[in-house]
Design a protein around this nucleic acid. Structure first.
Lengths: 202, 202
DNA sequence: AACTATTCTGTCATAGTGTGCCATAAGTCA
DNA sequence: TGACTTATGGCACACTATGACAGAATAGTT
């Protein structure tokens, strides 16, 4: 990796960190892009080259999570029931979070606090999740050999899976270490699996 | 109802109709508030007095739907399982849509076409749904006698219910009469009820 | 009908997000 | 070093959204 790319990654993380701190300090809405850019000595114009929007910045972790889910899904056996495969993908995300280094863990916790304090941001987060949902619907439809535009069950499977992830992340609203939060998210996955009729997703 | 209120309602509907037509004609993003306001001979400033944002306009039906759901929920017997109660509430929304008059039905169909053409708007719609979800979580938590901030199952019940509604509305992506769409949404509700283990939501 | 209070509306000013364009600076490779 | 590629900054601009104030329309009262 060349100097250029390392520098970019450094700037990217610097922007995220500065933004998270400002958001938590003075609120999401009352923090301007100008302030964030100023905090890391970068022009506002450059900010928008790293993140397409302020929302995108606050939800950057979705990009990573989606990647893991899609990769895991591609590796799951073709004949595995789709919801089961999705739950495996979610657990892969948990594992990734669990193994995050000190700084990454810090960001994860800050982000959680941020979403907790700004219900409005949860809306944005869910909206981003809808994007992931569409992509997952394509994949699951292909696995099941159905037309994604016509098969309701496919969409229901994906929607339930995303709901499971979201509930695990948002609730219960209690602070804790990364390990504790991951445990709760795993509980949510178990809960969902227990709640559904065996074979419902075939 | 006085002249003043009738006039307001007329303007409100005129704005919605003009906006829907412009959105479908030239796209959501490339339609400005100025254009919408101009089409109904109203100042842009007044537009924002009727709708807090362009998104709010595009998702005005959520307000009505949420109202119906909350009302229906309040009327359901206390000892009814929560998910069952929520499904009844969703069916109440369907009944309302089904009974809508010619003009309202027109708006409903236009809106559906709009969401179909702008996946980005679906994100906004889901974000608005998250707001409803929070309110429903409060109600369901009260019914179940648990703390909404701590009980995962409560949130899972609500999230699954909202997913059911959304899947029914968005999929399959096929045009049709209001009656046809309502039928599909009812199918989605049936599908969800069949997919869950009896007693999972107690 | 006239008078007053209330509410709605338009105009103006302003903050903030997001984008296109072009010149410049920095990193890359021969 | 020199030529090439890519990131950055600065500028102008369009759009959404809000606050403040003045004037118009409506409602209620006498």
């Amino acid at each position: 990796m060349g100097l250029r790319e390392r520098k970019k990654e450094k700037t990217r993380l610097a922007i995220i960190d500065a933004a998270l701190d400002l958001f938590l300090e003075q609120g999401y809405d009352s923090t301007t892009v100008e302030q964030i850019a100023g905090a890391v000595d970068v022009s506002p114009r450059t900010f928008f080259r790293y993140f397409t929007s302020k929302d995108h910045l606050a939800l950057w972790f979705h990009d990573h999570g989606e990647e893991i889910i899609l990769e895991t899904l591609a590796d799951r056996p073709r004949d595995e029931p789709p919801f089961t495969a999705l739950m495996h993908a979610l657990r892969a995300v948990l594992t990734d979070v669990e193994c995050s280094t000190g700084e990454d863990a810090e960001r994860f916790l800050k982000l959680r606090r941020l979403l907790d304090a700004n219900p409005h941001l949860i809306g944005r987060s869910v909206a981003r999740g809808a994007q992931t949902e569409r992509r997952l619907a394509e994949v699951i439809a292909a696995r099941r050999g159905v037309d994604p535009d016509k098969d309701q069950l496919t969409h229901l499977i994906v929607a339930f899976a995303m709901s499971t992830m979201r509930v695990g992340f948002e609730c219960p609203r209690r602070d804790g270490t990364v390990a504790e939060i991951v445990t709760r998210m795993a509980e949510s996955i178990d809960l969902a699996e227990r709640s559904l009729r065996p074979g419902w997703d075939l």
